[in-house]
Amino acid sequence: MATDAALRRLLRLHRTEIAVAVDSAFPLLHALADHDVVPEDKFQETLHLKEKEGCPQAFHALLSWLLTQDSTAILDFWRVLFKDYNLERYGRLQPILDSFPKDVDLSQPRKGRKPPAVPKALVPPPRLPTKRKASEEARAAAPAALTPRGTASPGSQLKAKPPKKPESSAEQQRLPLGNGIQTMSASVQRAVAMSSGDVPGARGAVEGILIQQVFESGGSKKCIQVGGEFYTPSKFEDSGSGKNKARSSSGPKPLVRAKGAQGAAPGGGEARLGQQGSVPAPLALPSDPQLHQKNEDECAVCRDGGELICCDGCPRAFHLACLSPPLREIPSGTWRCSSCLQATVQEVQPRAEEPRPQEPPVETPLPPGLRSAGEEVRGPPGEPLAGMDTTLVYKHLPAPPSAAPLPGLDSSALHPLLCVGPEGQQNLAPGARCGVCGDGTDVLRCTHCAAAFHWRCHFPAGTSRPGTGLRCRSCSGDVTPAPVEGVLAPSPARLAPGPAKDDTASHEPALH
Rank of each mutant, 00 (worst) to 15 (best):
A271D: 13
F230I: 04
P129T: 12
S248G: 12
E53V: 14
A205Y: 02
K159M: 07
G180V: 05
T46G: 00
S250Y: 13
I224C: 06
P119A: 10
G228K: 07
S250N: 08
A145P: 08
D105S: 01
L146Q: 11
S234A: 13
S220T: 08
G201C: 10
G227E: 03
Y231W: 11
Q212T: 04
P233F: 01
D76F: 01
R79W: 02
S169P: 15
D70H: 01
S99C: 11
G201K: 07
P101I: 01
K131T: 00
L97C: 02
S156R: 09
G155C: 05
A144T: 10
L62K: 00
A145T: 13
L146T: 11
Q157H: 14
A271V: 11
I211C: 04
S249D: 02
T147M: 13
A140H: 14
Q157M: 04
G201Q: 11
Q225E: 12
L106P: 00
D4N: 03
G112R: 03
S156M: 08
R190G: 05
P115G: 07
G112A: 15
I209A: 02
K259A: 13
R190K: 05
L97I: 00
L66W: 02
R257L: 08
Q44H: 00
K83G: 01
P39V: 00
E45I: 00
K243Q: 07
L97A: 00
M194I: 11
I18Y: 00
S64I: 01
R9M: 05
A21H: 03
P109R: 06
A31F: 01
K161Q: 07
L122H: 04
G91I: 01
S195R: 12
A152I: 07
K120H: 09
S248Y: 11
L210V: 07
F43P: 05
L67I: 04
Q172A: 06
E270H: 15
W78P: 05
A152S: 06
P95F: 13
R174W: 15
D34R: 00
S156Q: 05
S239H: 13
P163Q: 11
A191N: 02
E207F: 06
S239V: 12
G197F: 08
A264W: 15
R272I: 11
P126F: 03
G240F: 09
P95D: 04
H48C: 06
K133I: 01
V123C: 13
A144F: 13
H60A: 01
L210C: 02
H14A: 01
K235M: 14
P56R: 03
G228Q: 00
R15L: 04
A19W: 00
A6F: 14
D105V: 05
L63G: 07
N179E: 12
Q262H: 07
P116Q: 14
A145K: 08
P154V: 04
A61T: 05
V37E: 00
K165L: 03
T16N: 05
A21P: 02
T68C: 07
H35E: 00
R113K: 12
G242L: 12
R174H: 07
V256M: 09
Y231F: 11
K161R: 15
V20N: 01
K114N: 05
P200R: 10
L146G: 03
T147E: 15
G219Q: 02
L210R: 04
N244C: 04
S196H: 10
E45F: 05
R127M: 11
E53Y: 01
S241N: 12
D84A: 02
Q94N: 01
G263R: 07
K50G: 14
Q173S: 14
V22E: 00
H60S: 01
P124E: 09
E51M: 00
E137G: 05
S187I: 05
L7M: 04
T232Q: 14
A134P: 01
A31Y: 13
E216S: 14
F59M: 06
L67Q: 00
C223R: 07
A25N: 00
E53G: 01
Q94K: 13
F230P: 03
D198H: 08
T232G: 09
V38W: 00
R8Q: 00
Q189F: 01
R272Q: 09
L62D: 01
L128M: 14
E88T: 15
G180Y: 05
G240A: 06
P176D: 00
V80G: 06
N244V: 03
Q213A: 04
S64W: 04
V256S: 11
R79Q: 02
R190Y: 07
W65K: 05
Q262Y: 11
E51T: 01
Y90I: 01
F215T: 01
S156C: 14
A21F: 01
A25W: 00
G208L: 03
G178L: 15
T68E: 00
Q262V: 06
A193K: 08
Q212H: 15
E229A: 01
Q173F: 15
G54V: 04
E45M: 00
Q172T: 15
D238H: 14
G251M: 05
G263E: 14
A170W: 15
S168A: 08
E171I: 15
D41T: 07
Y85V: 03
V206A: 07
P124Q: 09
I74H: 05
Q173V: 14
Q173D: 10
G263Q: 00
